[in-house]
């Protein structure tokens, strides 16, 4: 049986202060970096292909003022932004249509379930053939991949609207447009927001993949070029930069989700009476 005298005390000590979480996270990161650094120093990892982490970071810091890095970041972000925006608009509109119409839902769910598992990268040869190796191909691949999480989330969200809320709107004879925009869609946000966060990450992954594989300009292309030139520290610097970009975008979306869902039980940290 439990040995704790006051139930919950132990959990509270470990959990409540936010800075403890942050501290633990930082400690974990530092440990991983230290292990990598140490592995290279003692020769566990060959220094040629695995330069010291500290050297990679120095390389990245050195590039912070150079246009090369920021141009690459800019290209990648441009592709990400266009495809994320396209995916969001397509998926939300399609999701509203499919989610609010039982016939359309029945007619499309098989198509969606067939198309969704296709890995975007499998389309690369086709896309290169049709659209070439530029921004268009990158945007097509990333949009294709990023549409699914938002589409599926929107459909589920539309179909799981609180019936009492819907009935309330109906009893006040709300116009369909008001019901959709002010009751159904906000009620679906708890589904859509995590979908958007996944889509953001997916779009970034596909942009970088397109740059790596088909050579569209951006961080992915810079990584390949550095690798081909044997500049491994540079290659790692770009890889780390790509990772940091992913982390930043994710943080952005976590914050956005918190803001959008501050009314939702999952996010209500304070102010509730009951």
């Amino acid at each position: 049986m439990s040995t704790s005298i006051i139930p919950g005390t132990r959990r509270r000590l470990l959990r409540s202060p936010k800075f403890t979480d942050g501290l633990l996270g930082a400690a974990g990161l530092v440990t991983v970096l230290a292990v990598l650094e140490f592995s290279t120093i003692v020769g566990l990892l060959p220094e040629k292909t695995f330069p010291r982490v500290s050297a990679d970071l120095r390389e990245l810091a050195g590039m912070a003022g150079a246009a090369e890095l920021w141009t690459a970041v800019g290209h990648t972000l441009q592709g990400w932004a266009i495809s994320f925006a396209l995916a969001t608009v397509i998926a939300v509109l399609l999701g509203i249509a499919v989610g609010s119409n039982a016939v359309l839902y029945a007619a499309t769910s098989a198509v969606i379930e067939f198309l969704r598992p296709i890995p975007s990268v499998a389309l690369i040869p086709l896309v290169v053939l049709v659209l070439g190796t530029g921004l268009q191909s990158k945007v097509f691949l990333a949009t294709f991949a990023a549409t699914w999480p938002v589409l599926v989330a929107t459909i589920y969200g539309m179909r799981d609207v609180e019936p009492v809320a819907l009935e309330t709107a109906r009893s006040f004879r709300a116009r369909p447009r008001d019901t959709l925009l002010s009751v159904v869609l906000p009620g679906a946000v708890p589904y859509i927001a995590p979908g958007l966060r996944v889509a953001s990450t997916t779009a970034l992954i596909l942009c970088v993949t397109a740059e790596l594989v088909i050579g569209a300009p951006g961080l992915g292309q810079s990584i390949t070029v550095a690798q081909a030139g044997g500049q491994y520290q540079l290659m790692y610097a770009f890889i780390i930069a790509t990772g940091l970009l992913g982390v930043l975008l994710n943080l952005l979306f976590v914050a956005l989700e918190k803001r959008l869902l501050r009314w939702h039980p999952s996010q209500r940290s304070q102010g509730g009476v009951q």
Partner: peptide, 22 residues
């Protein structure tokens, strides 16, 4: 069921204003 009938994403004022829009 007031907690489901009120829209949690709207403030009290917005909740009252919603049926008036039309």
């Amino acid at each position: 069921d007031y907690s489901r009938s009120l829209f949690p994403w709207m403030s009290v004022e917005q909740n009252i204003a919603f049926p008036l829009r039309r």
